[in-house]
Write a protein that binds this DNA or RNA. Sequence first.
DNA 1: GTCTATACCGTGATAGAC
DNA 2: GTCTATCACGGTATAGAC
Lengths: 235, 235
Amino acid sequence: MNQAKPSIPIGQDGPAEPKYSETAVRILDAAEGLFVELGMAATSLRLITQQAGVNLAAVNYHFRSKDALFEAVFLRRFGPWARACLEELDALERRVAGQPQALTAEVVMSYVRPAVALSKDPARGGAMFVRLFSRVLVENHRQLRETMSRQYGDLVTRYARALGRALPGLSEEEVEWRMHLGFSVMFHAFAGNDILKVFGRSAVSARDPDLIVKHMVPFVVAGLTSPSAGRPPGP
Amino acid sequence: MNQAKPSIPIGQDGPAEPKYSETAVRILDAAEGLFVELGMAATSLRLITQQAGVNLAAVNYHFRSKDALFEAVFLRRFGPWARACLEELDALERRVAGQPQALTAEVVMSYVRPAVALSKDPARGGAMFVRLFSRVLVENHRQLRETMSRQYGDLVTRYARALGRALPGLSEEEVEWRMHLGFSVMFHAFAGNDILKVFGRSAVSARDPDLIVKHMVPFVVAGLTSPSAGRPPGP
DNA sequence: GTCTATACCGTGATAGAC
DNA sequence: GTCTATCACGGTATAGAC
């Protein structure tokens, strides 16, 4: 609420990363695991505080509410990941300063690499973070969404620009659609949001990020670079 | 529990579609809208029964619990949709009895057509159903998942078989992966589970099913038919 | 069989003592 | 900063009316 800056540079030391007290961290750690495992609804504050070894009222003191706690849990992990993505994008733009196009796969990898690195780093939440993220997608965390679009909106803009340059033959609308579809595949593949799983066919929804990448990247690149859907085939 | 048949023909008059009393239907209708709009957690039974104009205890009488009510809400819509998919698959198999392959797009359409038809039919829940479905993906409805895999597991098996025949050059593992990825795109596209939306870029997550199909189908087909990822390029 | 009123316990949130 | 006491509200179970 009392965040002064309207436009925020995410790089280096971007949006204020709050310094949490020891009890706050204990709450965050306990809440993260339980939110992912049980879901926000089924996770009571009493369970969190019990597992964290702190008093019930500590949650409402350090964070404002259960919702705000969820937000804090999420943003603690999201910040570092967003920074990693921006670094990848910076590196990509430097790399292709001269070349005209032909690097759809590189744009994809600039998203995939930070995701894989994050999945493998338990200190930053590991694979749990992606599952947390997918809850944000389906549930309606209005406050969090506002924060995200305000602080990290340009992340998407930059991916859109990079993809637009990689696919010069397509209209702006089509680039938007493909970005939407491509990011959907990538995100849900990492999150393990598998419809087949609901039917008991969990054979493939593997946890190994490298295996996911191996099969997913060619799939996404093929989709992104497919011929334009706008005009029917012919001269 | 007292379902006698172990293997169930979903066609024609497959798994028992319960006949609901008028009050039960009123509860189902009210609950459906509220579950989709507010989410299961934020929807209280008191709100449901109030909106349905029935007594609070009616929920526990007609359905066993809030969870069981959610299941009933979901399965009421899922049954007809599953039947439509099976009819499409039957038609597809009849159509290609002779031909050897080359019909990935047809397999895709056999999933897409029922989805579009459903989205456009308010009498069967319309687009709400898909959003309900996506909650099932993220949340952990164990009981529902068991029911789904028991009663509708062969739906997935049949799609897998159809796709395997359309992609004869690929290993079984690769077909599984692509099915997983392809269905993810399709499902989440219809459900509107857009990561970009979280960042305020909702430009593309349109509601129009025809527009979704126009951009999504070429994307998915390109991904499904892309060269094998297993072996690196070469002879 | 169907519906209603009501009581039970766990939940998130808050005020105030320390 | 921390804790205790307390509140209104949630899902659920049951006893009893029709």
